[in-house]
Design a protein around this nucleic acid. Structure first.
Lengths: 239, 239
DNA sequence: ATTCTTATGGTTATTTTGACTACAAGTATA
DNA sequence: TATACTTGTAGTCAAAATAACCATAAGAAT
């Protein structure tokens, strides 16, 4: 599968695999007003102009794929300094209409209110869409989102990544509702409370909710230091 | 990052991303005589001739990446009809010495005695190596194996994939030792027994071990049909 | 007959779970 | 002011699960 090409600039003959294009696509999850959302961008140019898609694009020759994911996300949406995790590669031969392109998926969970989304580069718009209400996207991007959702449901049981979706200070009910949303199940308030507090992962604060029209609940904060200690001894996270 | 090339055969100008090479590498785990092993091949040609590596190679234009993984494994080692799962893409810019090559990792768990390994294609040899005793491999292949091991430890707690490493009929002690090996922990025979039997995943057979110099243990078989039923109701697998 | 190894079945105290009840704290409304 | 309503918090209790053991059975080796 190696073919010879002549570089137009230098005139040199170059041997290359004909398999030649790799892109990155990012699935960014957020949680707001009790519902799970995904960040999408509208393409400003190219064959998919005007259509909605996952933020993503081409990898540069000299950058690692992790760096490419961070760069593309920054350029298209303004998001920076995010913990991105690789999902998997999507490589159906016909997933891209103009040739063979493999894409490597990344995903992240962020607190929506901590970031400002600003469309840029080849994106004319960038918006949060509710997971339950995602439009038709280009190529296999809907498929990629579905895969991410499954992954999220699994991962959320393994590690305390759910906290990345909540504000720094949160109530136990908020935490429970987040898990109910992601996993699609109902839980018992009292039992959830007991379970999560026994884990001792949360630091109880001397603060309460403000401006609520009912009894204000205590606020908690996720304690990463404690979590690290617990994981070292082989700790399993589950609600 | 798009450059123009002239195809030597057709003379046409082709636009291509300069990022142009993707390979596949497979980590195949096996379990034999109480220890975990990995299948490696010796390269017969090219810049890494004589060196040991994970079975892998280039993806063809018209095949999916999953198919490429199956084909390469078959060509190099003779292994066929295996359940391969994608690991992740490895894409450090300098992981490959002769240019920018991204590799997509796959892994599988198989019963060693069920398959015949025969080196072929660009491999001059193919052998099982104990995980604790893996030589220095080409490029970042040692890194890929380490990543796979971590993945295996996680996955084995989520799903009953460990059974893929055991013969069809096995004793409870074998099963326990497999888990001890993979997870690197010690377990209590009696408690393990009770736990695993309560799951009702195993079908007790009317057979016993043969040719052992001690009391022969009962043989069991993993019951995939039961497992499927249980997972549908949201079943969590853990020892 | 004795010893050794592994298989298998129990016992027990302790911890964890799930389902519920009760009540406290605060807001909204009559 | 009284009452209803919502959400937070604590506790009860029976059933299930766990961890740490002990005891004995089955068979092979000496």
């Amino acid at each position: 599968m190696i073919k010879k090409f002549i570089d137009e600039e230098s005139g040199k003959v170059i041997e290359r695999s004909v398999m030649n294009s790799i892109t990155i696509d990012c699935v960014i999850f957020g949680f707001d007003k009790g519902s799970l959302k995904v960040l999408l961008v509208e393409h400003a140019e190219g064959i998919s102009k005007g259509k909605w898609a996952l933020p993503g694009g081409w990898i540069k020759e000299e950058e690692s794929i992790d760096n490419a994911a961070h760069r593309l996300l920054r350029e298209l949406t303004g998001l920076d300094n995010i913990y991105l995790e690789q999902l998997k590669a999507f490589g159906d031969p016909d997933r891209f209409p103009l040739g063979r392109v493999i894409t490597i998926g990344y995903y992240a969970l962020i607190k929506i209110e901590d970031y400002n989304i600003t469309a840029g580069f080849t994106a004319s718009d960038a918006k949060w869409y509710e997971v339950a209400d995602i439009p038709e996207l280009i190529y296999d991007h809907n498929k990629i989102i579905n895969f991410s959702l499954k992954q999220l449901r699994n991962r959320v049981k393994q590690a305390p990544i759910g906290f990345n979706l909540l504000p720094e200070k949160f109530t136990l009910l908020q935490l429970m509702q987040l898990y109910e949303q992601i996993l699609g199940i109902e839980m018992d308030k009292s039992n959830f409370r007991r379970k999560v507090l026994r884990m001792k992962l949360l630091q109880a604060l001397d603060e309460k909710q403000q401006d609520v029209s009912h009894r204000a609940a205590k606020l908690y904060r996720f304690d990463y230091a404690i979590y690290k200690k617990l994981t070292e001894k082989g700790f399993n996270f589950e609600f």
